[in-house]
Design a protein around this nucleic acid. Structure first.
Lengths: 205, 205
DNA sequence: TACTATTGTGAGTAATAGCTCAGCTATTCT
DNA sequence: AGAATAGCTGAGCTATTACTCACAATAGTA
């Protein structure tokens, strides 16, 4: 763990303001390009063109194409769009309310840029470093939910760890499918049913 | 629907036995190569090399790279690995037994070559034709499950259509995750919990 | 054996995309 | 102002890969 993957590190640190701006333009452009064309067809030249900077500048701040998507993904995670439910560890409430909040947080995290998120989830060539980071993050969330389930009086489930994994993944993937599709299903209905399923499961028979 | 996507049609029909053999070798090799290297890195030259035929022969039976993966996917669907639960439409039994059978069928369909299936699901560049075929197939399955739910006396759910979508997708994705990961979770435990979740949901409060 | 149709070959082509580098411009420092 | 540093440029290099085509080999037929 002492030596991080150099292939994801920038080759130059932006010191001046305009440099930081350039970096931002690259990331913004990349988000648009990846969302629109997908990862493979989202070429670095296209990104540079959209950012209105030269291809050379792009490679001043990102050592390779993968690093750009990695940065976008890390930002998304850090920004808390995947961790919006942290507060739930502390907040009380009925089981149904709690689960509904989980579902709503998932929907929120997918609302910002569903297309980009789809690309990152489905097409990104994830490096081991990035996978580890995501894995660690997932472990934290699972632990939080496990605590929550353990504490809640209404939860009656065999193994709390398995249950935490199961409901987190189920909520995440169903939400992903819901938001990625072009409004084919009424959001409210689906969200309610999803919350119902999880709630009934956690309550036991 | 009268004009199928020509880009997926072979340019020559195998008439002799050795030709059919060659075609088979290509598909077998492609399955291995895609599973091992992924779709992008699974080059046509690598496939030909593994099949021990020339790259030219490969392009005699498949017009392009996409068509090879498409053929593998179509085979998988036709082979019934995704339709193993058809019999459930007729078979009676308790709700829990029925759901458990659904889960087991899903696991079976993912057992054969989980890596290849992962590639096909996550990395395949699906043509519209192929998407339509999958869509149609999915609609059939959903209809079957909807019928099943409608008929079963123990099912108490608001909208049967939404419920069918929800449980099919949930079972499919959870199974996919379970089988794609290298035995990180005990299969039996997870399968039981998954079946429990779906069963409790369908039974209503 | 001679003829034809089918099948197989693999060096080579065309297109694409990630990425470099020598030189230029802008900003900061003294 | 002049020097030093930081930032920017974009033509083009290098590598890769899907795919072609002129030809060779094999199988079927009489």
């Amino acid at each position: 763990m002492p030596s991080a993957d150099r292939r994801l590190q920038p080759r130059r640190k932006p010191l001046q303001v305009r440099a930081e701006l350039t970096r931002e333009r690259i990331l913004t452009a990349a988000a648009h390009v990846f969302a629109e064309h997908g990862y493979a067809a989202g070429t670095t030249n296209r990104i540079a063109e959209r950012a209105r900077i030269s291809i050379g500048s792009l490679y001043q701040y990102f050592p390779n194409k993968d690093a750009i998507l990695a940065q976008l993904l890390i930002r998304h995670i850090d920004r808390g769009t995947w961790t919006g439910a942290d507060r739930l560890s502390l907040a009380p409430g009925t089981l149904r309310e709690t689960v509904q909040a989980l579902v709503r947080d998932a929907i929120d995290s997918h609302s910002e840029d569903p297309q980009l998120l789809r690309i990152m989830i489905e097409e990104a060539p994830l490096s081991q470093d990035l996978l580890d980071a995501i894995e660690r993050h997932g472990a934290v969330r699972t632990a939080q939910i496990r605590d929550l389930l353990t504490r809640h009086p209404d939860v009656r489930v065999g193994d709390v760890g398995t249950a935490a994994d199961l409901i987190l993944f189920t909520i995440e993937m169903n939400t992903h499918k819901l938001m990625a599709a072009p409004g084919s299903v009424p959001v409210e209905t689906f969200a309610t049913e999803l919350a119902d399923m999880v709630t009934r499961y956690l309550r036991g028979d």
